[in-house]
């Protein structure tokens, strides 16, 4: 168990390292291009060269790479070209906002989809199952920005109930949270629901559930004690891995609603060519993804006695 965790941890670090190297070579191998981005397209070659030597770009590529990694480990990603402030400051602020959004999302999505999934899977083929299944295919079929379009059309333009942007310029507002969270939940809950349903349905047809029923146990105990525990192992991993998916969704939703989060920061940076911000954002995103994979692997082993004790 500990060995497994250690192994995963090493693999995780290795991936982070490779990713950082790819990123750095992608964005900073060509020094002149970097200087061009920093000083603007109209800067002269001399200006760029002076800037390069002033900022330590004369060192060989690998030295620069190690310095950059060193900086990144201390949270120093340089200054944003667009906002002229340290990237880390920007990032912390934006991550906090995104964190709030993600937290609210999970708090609603998890109970919702687990309940629906278990209800649907408990009696495969029942009308409840059919309704839940069809509903969840429908919602997962509509990408975030399309849902966002429809919701905005109705709640903002037609009924004037909610604000169309969530930039929170005048402080935190629950009202501005509603649409972004709703869009994320609508798109994502279907997937988890379907996974939970499949897992539950499989457990319900397993021989040990038959054993439990034929032992004469009350139905409630069969479900609560025998089925749920086994049925929820798979959804657990899915939910944790959902973090990775969620990041993609967050990018879209934040851009759509002008929510000042991590995703909109990344897209702005990509459109502006703010390479230091891109680098930092991607490293953070990959860290979150890899870390959630780690948690999901470990969790899976812990939840599954068959693996835990072998």
């Amino acid at each position: 168990m500990i060995v497994l965790a250690a192994k995963r941890l090493v693999a995780m670090l290795l991936i982070m390292l490779v990713v950082s190297f790819i990123l750095f070579s992608l964005f900073e191998a060509d020094k002149m291009a970097v200087a061009g981005k920093v000083l603007g397209p109209y800067s002269s070659v001399e200006q760029r060269e002076t800037w390069l030597s002033q900022n330590g770009y004369d060192e060989p590529f690998f030295t620069r790479y190690t310095q950059w990694v060193g900086g990144a480990l201390h949270g120093d990603f340089g200054n944003s070209l667009q906002y002229k402030v340290p990237v880390s400051e920007l990032l912390v602020d934006r991550l906090k906002n995104t964190g709030i959004l993600a937290l609210v999302f999970f708090l609603i999505m998890i109970p919702l989809s687990l309940t629906l999934g278990v209800l649907a899977g408990m009696k495969e083929g029942s009308w409840l199952d059919r309704i839940i299944s069809i509903f969840s295919v429908l919602t997962t079929s509509i990408p975030e920005f399309v849902t966002a379009t429809f919701l905005t059309g109705l709640f903002v333009y037609t009924w004037h109930l909610l604000p169309g942007t969530s930039s929170m310029t005048s402080g935190f507002s629950w009202k501005e949270m509603i649409l972004p969270v709703a869009v994320l939940v609508i798109y994502d809950f279907g997937y988890v629901t379907r996974m939970t349903r499949a897992s539950m349905a499989e457990v319900m047809t397993s021989q040990y559930i038959r054993t439990a029923i034929l032992k004469g146990l009350p139905y409630k105990r069969v479900i609560m004690r025998h089925a749920l525990r086994n049925a929820l192992i798979a959804p657990f991993t899915v939910i944790v891995l959902q973090l990775n998916w969620l990041l993609s969704g967050l990018v879209v939703v934040e851009v759509f609603f002008a929510y000042k989060g991590f995703g909109s920061l990344l897209v702005d940076a990509a459109l502006f060519g703010d390479i230091y911000v891109i680098e930092a954002c991607v490293m953070v995103a990959v860290f979150i993804a890899v870390f959630s994979q780690f948690i999901s692997d470990i969790g899976y082993t812990l939840l599954n006695p068959r693996i835990r004790f072998s």
């Binding site: 397993s206 040990y208 038959r210 439990a212 086994n230 599954n304 006695p305 068959r306």
Partner: peptide, 8 residues
């Protein structure tokens, strides 16, 4: 094996 609940 299949008739016994693996997680109990």
């Amino acid at each position: 094996m299949a008739s016994l609940n693996p997680s109990m």
